[in-house]
Amino acid sequence: MSKPIIQVKNLHKWYSGVHALKGVTLDVQRGEALGLVGDNGAGKSTLINILSGLHQQDEGEIIVEGQPVQISNPKDAMALGIETIYQYNSMVPIMTIARNMFIGREPVKFSIGGIGWLDEAKMREESVQAIADVDLHLRSPDALVGELSGGQRQGVAIARAMHFKSKVMILDEPTNHLSVKETAKVIGFVQGLKEQGVTAIFISHNLHHVFACCDRIVAMALGEVVLDKRANETSIEEVSEKL
């Protein structure tokens, strides 16, 4: 087996008196779709927030593609090719698709001291292309994200991550509050990632969704990993027992 794309070693995190992560060790293999499951407060969000740069671990090590790394903010994570898609938090509803696509990574025609003139034509063109690439069909990149359905929003977020060539895509509860049809679409997106060689970490507390698109299941409870098996070697029953 090739080298894991992300290795997490003995990760600890305390939140004012709460020991949220108790020495989590986990290898994520290149190209796999890993399902991370657990009840509320199991520590999965904490782990994800550390990998995406929103929080820092108190102890432990993160190794990306063989290199020990320090992820101090979301920009660091993105630079390493780790992109996180949150259920609510990844898009600004009152902004257009094209604007959302490039938040924080806007293409500029020229810039002075970090303030640059937006290349709006490029933003529109590339967002149309990126959206089409994930098989989502939207009429205009000028539509407000707030007008899209939940599934379409996830699609745009995934398109954004694909556009910026992320190597690892973390999807935090992407199917929450979605209709059955929309959920199927998001699961389709995740399955599509594997064909493109993108590693996916899919977080959900809906085991059916996880089993539908992941080839490895990692379960967490009370800040620890309690189960780590191939999806075809375990079952929904076994996983739910552990949670």
Binding site: S52, G53, L54, N73, P74, K75, M78, T84, Y86, Y88, N89, S90, M91, V92, I103, G104, R105
Partner: peptide
Amino acid sequence: PAAKAMGI
């Protein structure tokens, strides 16, 4: 939250 998550 979105702006923060995108590293702004």
